[in-house]
Amino acid sequence: MAAVATKYEDLKKLDVEVLSISVDSHFVHKIWQEEELSKMVEGGVPFPMLSDAGGKIGSIYGVYNEAGGVNTRGRFIIDPDGIIQAIEILTPPVGRNVSELFRQIQAFQLVRNSKGSEATPSGWQPGKPTLKPGPDLVGKVWQEWKVENAF
């Protein structure tokens, strides 16, 4: 959470709002912020920290673990129309990668801004070439894109 908080200004520049959510109460969020998060990142977590006591929201999103009574690490990218564009769900011991979050948001924004005329191939990074899906590209991806571009 602190990692996302550190990059929050950059996310805002991309017109992204972050909502973090766990089964903890908003009271516990406050103490976590004051006791720990504010010492990990200057100013603490700037975005809303939501409470999902009982996991009702996590259940709907398919990330609630009933045995543990907690939400697993589920990350959803939702576009301005309210459509889920990406889902990443990890078991608790492995943390997420904020850089990959940025890459995916920038890719989805590029595709949206192109109105679907462009697609981002494997390993795409901002500035790297995109593909223009259409009849002309069928069977010709090997000419337009090399496997080395993925890394």
Partner: peptide, 16 residues
């Protein structure tokens, strides 16, 4: 938040 991009991050718990 309609009209903006939103990232929802579920996580197991505070102080983990």
């Amino acid at each position: 938040y309609l009209g903006k991009w939103v990232v929802i991050c579920f996580y197991p718990g505070d102080f983990t």
